[in-house]
Amino acid sequence: LPLMRTCKEVTALVIAREDRELPLTEQLALHMHMAICKACPTFERQVMTMRNAMKQWRNYGADD
């Protein structure tokens, strides 16, 4: 139970992971939540899409 997180907490963790390494307990909590939640994996994919978008945006114009 101490590892259980709400969707709101998990979305914050997914975002935080972009800028810092999460403590092991938070990583575990995130994995546990993702395994049983139908909504949060979609949010996680959105964040991954944004990560790819940033990569393209960084290079935009550098290669015509």
């Binding site: 969707c7 909504a39 959105q46």
Partner: peptide, 29 residues
């Protein structure tokens, strides 16, 4: 964002699909 009082999603976030081509377009940039 649409969360219920208990902190869970009120509705599933939108599926953005696999926008690989989108990300390379001038309009997206």
């Amino acid at each position: 964002m649409a969360f219920k009082a208990d902190g869970h999603f009120a509705e599933k976030p939108a599926d953005w699909g696999n926008p690989e081509q989108d990300l390379k377009s001038r309009q997206f940039m």
